[in-house]
Design a protein around this nucleic acid. Structure first.
Lengths: 232, 232
DNA sequence: CGGAACATTGACCCATGTCAAGTGTCGTGG
DNA sequence: CCACGACACTTGACATGGGTCAATGTTCCG
């Protein structure tokens, strides 16, 4: 899942790197700050804008009538949110830490896309990446055990950490155990137990509940893909 | 899901039945037949074509190293498959009954899309619909009980049946119990047990394992959304 | 008609949910 | 600076939904 954020890596010496039209447009877009737990939009809101996360993190989730919650994704800096919904949003977007967003009016975006097929293609790609990520998550929640899910989650976060040029084996999880549980289809307690067990087994280490260090990545990788099963 | 397909509305007066450019292109595309259980493409295949299902049904799925399988969607007549993958496919597409497909070379599609933003938008919309469907499924597999999952599945199928102008309360499921299980994240046995129970409760009726009649839709709808839970 | 694939049903058991208690940890106000 | 309350997290005991294994029934096609 290499992201659209090529521009984040290739920063200008003299602005050699021609920025895409999307970046150009976004650079001028208004900035919005949201505090932790504040909503960017909720289900039913008219889809007036698309947002790009600049800093912070956002949880995207749906809820059932009785309050059960499924987080379908987290958005980190560089990610676009609000794409693909027509008319009104079908989910909630809530900040999990203080966050800054660029706000791009849908109308502007569509006008630009009609004029420039390359922009349209960018949006298409962004959506395709989201779809791929969502399907991977489905494979995880639908088929894996609790331990496999948590480990897959940690490894995915590790890969992301690496992708943005940070230590892939030592990172800060911005979300709570409840968020992880609602993402993986597990309860808080199960997430907590699995993490404790991984620590006891010496596969990960924690200093402060949210700072994770991956100690034995090969073993973790094996666990994620079902080591110790029938047809492994 | 009313669409942005303004271009579909604003069509010329002559040529009464305005077919979109996508339909025009597909009408000329080559036809391919696949038998039940035959693959349209598998993980790793180069993404040379996009397909539209004409008749039959296709299962789209991913597999884990040890063989566990997650069906991420079924494609029925009218649906596009193979969109959103770059370079190579990341999943398998297998017919669950004899199926006919229109095959559209990716290159042709992209060339057309570059020329006509309206087509690009169609593809974008198709992808957005898939994303929405996948997320709904995630909510189901991640948060619902076995009974809720099966009932949700039946109701979704019922809605589709209605959408294509057929009886929403009496339909033929093209897929096996194994397919349903791998779609919902349940075992064959559980699917079978739940269906038997629903029948015993008089909520559905079956003549031949695959022909389903929904008897008490209101109750089914209540079950799907968690009737009999804490905060219902 | 026969066999293979698919489906149902039952008995048992385990992974994970539920309920409950207890332990940090952080931010606020005294 | 400390005390307090609110949360988040951990841990334990127990319950249970759904998985596993196994036997049997059914359907469909050659």
């Amino acid at each position: 899942m290499q992201t659209l954020s090529l521009q984040a890596v290739a920063q200008p010496i003299v602005d050699t790197r021609p920025k895409g039209i999307l970046d150009q447009t976004l650079a001028q877009a208004s900035l919005r700050r949201v505090e932790a737990k504040e909503f960017v939009f909720v289900e039913g809101d008219p889809t007036t804008h698309v947002f790009r996360v600049e800093t912070g993190a956002i949880a995207l989730y749906k809820v059932l009538a009785d309050g059960r919650r499924q987080i379908v994704g987290f958005a980190y800096p560089g990610d676009l949110i609000g794409l693909g919904a027509e008319g009104e949003h079908v989910m909630n977007a809530q900040a999990i830490k203080p966050t800054r967003l660029r706000c791009l009016p849908m109308a502007t975006l569509y006008r630009s896309a009609a004029a420039d097929p390359a922009l349209g293609f960018k949006l298409y790609e962004a959506l395709a990446r989201e779809l791929a990520a969502t399907r991977d998550l489905m494979l995880t929640t639908g088929q894996r055990s609790a331990t496999e899910r948590v480990v897959s989650f940690l490894l995915a976060f590790s890969r992301r950490s690496e992708r943005i040029g940070q230590d892939p084996c030592d990172f800060e999880l911005p979300m709570t155990r409840a968020d992880i549980g609602d993402f993986l289809g597990l309860t808080i307690e199960t997430v907590s137990r699995v993490i404790s067990q991984l620590r006891r087994d010496g596969l990960i280490a924690l200093e402060s509940g949210h700072r994770v260090r991956l100690v034995d990545v090969p073993t973790l990788a094996r666990i994620a893909d079902g080591a110790g099963r029938s047809a492994e």
